[in-house]
């Protein structure tokens, strides 16, 4: 294993990983969950055929799987049961299940929940592309609010590159050893009310960005969108942003764009969005 993948996973991490092979996945899963044991977290393994994975990924790495299961320190679910009960994916139900899991763990004296999930099968589901990434963004927000850490692993050989790019874009962190799929933009949580929009946003991802922001609005008390690391945005991107923030304005007590460059402010105003919506635009360097 490389130094890049064997890094400490702080509580609240929501990490994405497109794993290159079975061996790496086994090592990283074992390492990730072992860290949780030391941190007094309840461990969760989500994988296809979880019985076999408990053996291959954890027991063979020296973790006392049977004892951990018996003591309630480890639980396992199949990917299908966790994400696709009845063959359909329900983001609200999944997030509610995590909240219940965290509550239960805290009640049982654990410090939180730590999930290692192999969600390859979900990412391959037809029609779930944007819906899944919207869910992952909401999970990213969940990890800022509650003692919840998750490693979301996807077999990079079994997933379409554009889907992997998008799912990476909505995680606060990604493992990759330099091979992480390169999404041109990223949108993830900084804290419970702040999202970071970074990289390059153009017409190719404008509608996706709009869906992601719209889907995450119900989980936010208010929205502060940090654009200080947005290196390029075109008119279609700005328009999608304006439309999503208009939607957010109707639902949240306040919406602001923070860290906007002089260029961002100028184009935003040229397109008339400065007067069209009630978003507070905070320029770069302003406090």
């Amino acid at each position: 294993m490389t130094k890049t993948t064997r890094c400490a996973h702080a509580a609240g991490d929501h990490v994405c990983w497109a794993y290159p092979d079975e061996e790496s996945r086994r090592e990283v899963f074992a390492d990730f969950l072992r860290t949780g044991l030391a941190a007094q977290q309840r461990l969760v393994l989500i994988a296809p055929d979880p019985e076999r994975r408990l053996e291959s990924d954890l027991a063979s790495a020296g973790l006392p799987v049977r004892k951990l299961l018996r003591d309630g320190r480890l639980v396992a679910f199949s990917t299908e049961d966790a994400y696709l009960p009845d063959g359909t994916f329900d983001a609200d139900a999944r997030l509610a299940a995590y909240c219940a899991l965290i509550e239960g763990a805290l009640a049982d004296g654990f410090s939180g929940v730590r999930v290692a999930a192999d969600a390859t099968a979900v990412l391959a589901e037809p029609g779930l592309d944007t819906a899944w990434s919207s869910y992952e963004l909401r999970a990213d927000l969940l990890a800022t609010r509650l003692p919840f850490s998750a490693l979301c692993a996807y077999d990079r050989h079994a997933c379409a590159a554009d889907r992997l790019e998008l799912v990476h874009a909505v995680h606060s962190r990604s493992l990759g050893n330099g091979h992480a799929p390169g999404s041109p933009f990223r949108l993830h949580a900084l804290d419970h009310e702040r999202l970071l929009l970074a990289g390059e946003l153009d017409f190719r991802h404008a509608e996706v960005l709009r869906s992601l922001l719209t889907a995450s609005a119900p989980d936010l008390p208010r929205l502060r969108l940090d654009v200080s690391r947005l290196s390029f945005v075109d008119a279609a991107g700005m328009s999608a942003l304006a439309k999503a923030l208009t939607h957010a304005c109707e639902r949240l007590s306040s919406v602001s764009i923070e860290g906007a460059s002089e260029r961002f402010c100028r184009i935003w105003s040229l397109l008339g969005f400065d007067t069209a919506i009630e978003v507070e635009l905070v320029a770069e360097g302003a406090s």
Binding site: A235, A236, S239
Partner: peptide
């Protein structure tokens, strides 16, 4: 024509 929230295009030539 000044584009707005309701429009779906026309931004590029306006800019």
């Amino acid at each position: 024509v000044q584009p707005g929230l309701e429009t779906t295009g026309g931004y590029g030539l306006w800019l």
